[in-house]
Design a protein around this nucleic acid. Structure first.
Lengths: 195, 195
DNA sequence: GTCTATACGAAGATAGAC
DNA sequence: GTCTATCTTCGTATAGAC
């Protein structure tokens, strides 16, 4: 890669990774082919194995890693406001946007990586790392705003699991209802933690 | 199909559907081929398009439908005891068994149907029907045991979403921790519903 | 870094015999 | 209801020129 990299531009390699992530969140891993990535990204066909000598496994793993990091960044930005409940609403709003803008065709690429991890161990590892990173960020924010350290971790896992599960349901039902319901229940549960 | 059907036996067609469901929960839809189903079920190759003239789309849709119904049956049986919280624990225990017995290779086939629904509209519809059926059963039981009708529905959605999301995380992490944490949080949340 | 050409296998699907 | 054979398409991956 050249040392000169104008701000805002993307290398062919980066475009391929982003495009792969976008395709995977709609079709899944196995249904996303090199041809699809080439066509959608405009990347040159001959450079696939130059940039990704490990072939599709490597491309998928890197796309999953990129997705996990991108989502983590968005989550951390929301959490920086200091209010975990408000951050959760903002985070859910982003997913609402993804679902409606794609007519419920897109979901979370990290979930796809887990569901189709049998032939993609690298993607599975990247998915695991993503879940851990998201939940650590959430748990830290929950603790800072007064949650018992013992419960912050499990509450963070509940939030991530419920949102991801709701997204899956939204895609199947082609409706935002599951996400709306989960948001409502999570908000009351976090605001009034008992037990 | 013959009229004579000894109890406990399965037709070739039924075996194919069950086997497909088991393969899909491990590999996903796209990574499950006819050859895999033939080999794993022992079904004769020449009968695929006899039983499923709609090809793979039909087989996948029927396998998703069967999975949804099987899980609904298990859930309703657990709920028949009259204690929704106990039923939830029992339900989660079943998933713990699936995860450990398959060394975290298997998840929920209905989730796979949603994630890979782009090329499988029939599977998507079957997944949607499954989610609705599970949540109606849960919501009914929650109402009967005293939950406000208004909240029973959203609580049922939260439970299903959280468990499904936890299963996805368990597969990625190869650990039961996410399911354990979600179970704990759900139990306290249902036992002490505020808001 | 990108190109073309191609090898090679596997997939879903169909036809026609038994 | 099941078999074999085959068609066609598409997938990943590689080789070697530019």
């Amino acid at each position: 890669m050249s040392v000169i990299m104008p701000a805002g531009s993307l290398t062919s390699r980066e475009r391929m990774i982003r495009t792969t992530a976008l395709l995977v969140r709609e079709r899944g891993i196995e249904a996303t082919s090199f041809s699809d990535v080439i066509e959608a990204s405009g990347a040159p066909r001959g450079s696939i194995y130059h940039h990704f000598p490990g072939g599709k496994s490597q491309l998928i793993a890197e796309a999953t890693e990129w997705s996990g990091a991108a989502i983590a960044t968005g989550l951390e930005r929301a959490l920086a406001g200091g209010d975990p409940v408000a951050a959760m609403h903002a985070f859910i709003d982003v997913w609402r946007g993804v679902l409606t803008e794609t007519n419920f065709d897109a979901g979370c690429p990290v979930v796809a990586a887990s569901v189709e991890s049998a032939a993609n161990p690298g993607a599975r590892e990247a998915a695991a790392a993503a879940f851990i990173a998201w939940e650590e960020a959430l748990a830290g924010a929950l603790e800072e705003s007064g949650a018992e350290p013992d419960r912050a971790g499990s509450l963070a896992t509940l939030i991530v699991a419920a949102i991801e599960g709701a997204i899956v349901q939204c895609r199947a039902l082609r409706s935002l209802d599951p996400l709306d319901r989960v948001e409502r229940e999570l908000a009351t549960g976090i605001a009034a933690p008992t037990g």
